[in-house]
Amino acid sequence: MATDAALRRLLRLHRTEIAVAVDSAFPLLHALADHDVVPEDKFQETLHLKEKEGCPQAFHALLSWLLTQDSTAILDFWRVLFKDYNLERYGRLQPILDSFPKDVDLSQPRKGRKPPAVPKALVPPPRLPTKRKASEEARAAAPAALTPRGTASPGSQLKAKPPKKPESSAEQQRLPLGNGIQTMSASVQRAVAMSSGDVPGARGAVEGILIQQVFESGGSKKCIQVGGEFYTPSKFEDSGSGKNKARSSSGPKPLVRAKGAQGAAPGGGEARLGQQGSVPAPLALPSDPQLHQKNEDECAVCRDGGELICCDGCPRAFHLACLSPPLREIPSGTWRCSSCLQATVQEVQPRAEEPRPQEPPVETPLPPGLRSAGEEVRGPPGEPLAGMDTTLVYKHLPAPPSAAPLPGLDSSALHPLLCVGPEGQQNLAPGARCGVCGDGTDVLRCTHCAAAFHWRCHFPAGTSRPGTGLRCRSCSGDVTPAPVEGVLAPSPARLAPGPAKDDTASHEPALH
């Protein structure tokens, strides 16, 4: 009773807030009518008042009428009001819900409408889902798969039609296919003929059939049928067999079959498995989609049935006599038709004709302190090069084509190399640097090759510096006499390219 009084008091307290929050009759008014909170006449009256005075006034009048009803109607109103779709449509209802007392429970059932309790003993237990329907569909599909699609060729003596089998029958139906081979029951999904010589313990000319048996419980189990008994694959494991010639990621696949039913060829011909030897223990289905393919039931050349050999690369099948050149017997292992072999060759040939990528240039590290003349020119003028003790990398590039010797140069053309002071002394051009340390401070000019250098860098042994005729380390061993002091540049003949010694390969005349 306390809860009923509290709900009535809360409705009177929030009546105006609810009326202002509800700006549309749908969905709240319609939901109240659906849950029998508002009768039909009051529903029509509220809609009429909404058209006349507006939605807030109409709902305020409806809530005032609701306060005169019993506690069950008020409880049902609060339940409908706080439904998710009403809270989404009328956003101003959320503060009312947040301020609702926590001790007021809106989930209690309506009085007088409590459903009768059902004894637990009368409640049926839930049924577990079964796979009976899938099993029945598999039974119905198996006879259809064994139905012949056409008439065999005159040369083929193997013609068999499976008798119709009602689904209610649980007995196995067997077809006489000759040579002791028996087909599987209607619940078998796949059958492959297997030679009895590969099964340990088999006697006589009995041949087993590799099947997948579907049981009534819905589970499946792969086994071997020899005669009327089934054997699990673990009985046929043979770890010492060295003649297993397995197909790549293979499961067994029928390579020879008669049109209309699988079996042995007439005249004692023995149908073979995809792999010879003992049956392997793992009978998992292969991951290669080509091995799941269903080959055609007629020859791809003459479009006739009979004894066919199936290609492992495509769905086509052929007569042995229709092949070019014809085959006398079934080859062992994987067999592919000429079209598949030709496609494989065409895929391999473009790969062989692809040009080989060019090898990157060989990189040879230079000892610290040495650099090529090109690196000396590329440096920024007026700045010493940083990191001189790091190992430089010199790339061996292809030799350029031989060019004509340089033409003779006048001494005026070499004027930018040297600057003559007032006393006739050779001065260095701006930006000249030593080729060893890279520093341009207090550098000297070689009178023979006009290269800038430090005496301490080229002659670290402490050799005394002569007063005139300074030469760098590369030119100090040259027998050519030094030019007379005061000459602007060496003779043009000295600039012609010539053979250089091994220790002077990195010091070429550089223009500054």
Rank of each mutant, 00 (worst) to 15 (best):
V226C: 03
G180C: 13
L93K: 00
L13G: 01
R12Q: 00
P254I: 08
H48Y: 13
D105V: 05
Q212K: 10
A261K: 08
N179R: 15
D105F: 04
L13W: 04
G242V: 10
V118C: 13
G208W: 03
K120G: 11
F215G: 04
F236T: 01
R132Q: 03
K159Q: 01
R113G: 07
S187N: 06
I74K: 04
G228H: 00
D103M: 00
A205C: 10
N86L: 03
A205V: 03
A144S: 07
E270M: 13
E40P: 05
S169Q: 03
V206Q: 02
P166V: 09
L10V: 01
A144Y: 15
G112M: 04
A33G: 05
H35N: 07
S153C: 13
K120A: 07
A6Q: 10
S153P: 15
A61F: 03
F100K: 07
N86D: 00
G201N: 10
L255H: 13
Q108K: 04
V104E: 07
N244D: 11
A170Q: 04
T151M: 04
T232L: 11
P125Q: 07
P129V: 03
P233V: 04
S239H: 13
S168I: 03
F215I: 06
N86Y: 02
G263V: 13
P162E: 03
F43H: 00
Q225K: 13
P143Q: 14
R247C: 11
E88R: 15
P143T: 15
A6C: 07
G251D: 13
L11G: 00
Q213R: 05
P143R: 05
E45W: 12
G91M: 10
S196D: 09
K114N: 05
V188P: 05
T147G: 07
P116C: 14
K102W: 15
S71L: 00
G219Y: 12
Q262D: 12
Q69P: 02
A31Y: 13
P166G: 15
E51W: 00
P129H: 01
Q69M: 00
T183G: 06
V118P: 15
K42W: 01
E207H: 07
G204R: 14
A140C: 05
G269S: 13
P109W: 02
Q157S: 11
S64P: 07
L122A: 07
L62V: 02
D198P: 05
L11W: 03
A117T: 12
S71W: 01
V22F: 01
Q182G: 04
D105S: 01
I224Y: 08
V199L: 10
G54Y: 06
E216N: 15
T183A: 06
L158R: 03
A73F: 02
P39S: 04
K243D: 02
I224C: 06
L32Y: 03
T183Y: 01
P124A: 05
G228Q: 00
A21T: 01
G208Y: 01
E53T: 14
T151S: 10
L97F: 14
T16A: 00
S99V: 07
S220R: 11
K221E: 11
K52L: 11
S195R: 12
A160H: 05
K42L: 02
A58H: 00
I18W: 01
W65K: 05
A152S: 06
P129D: 02
W65A: 00
L49A: 03
H14C: 01
L67E: 00
Q182N: 15
V206K: 06
D23S: 02
G240V: 09
I224E: 10
K131D: 01
T183H: 06
K164S: 13
K222Q: 11
L63T: 00
K221I: 00
R139K: 14
G218T: 11
D198Y: 10
M184E: 00
I209R: 09
G251N: 01
L87N: 05
Q94C: 00
G201E: 07
I74M: 02
G208I: 01
K159N: 14
A142Y: 12
S169D: 13
F230E: 04
K111E: 07
R149P: 08
L93V: 02
Q57T: 03
L29M: 01
E167D: 11
K221P: 07
G218I: 12
L62C: 05
R190P: 09
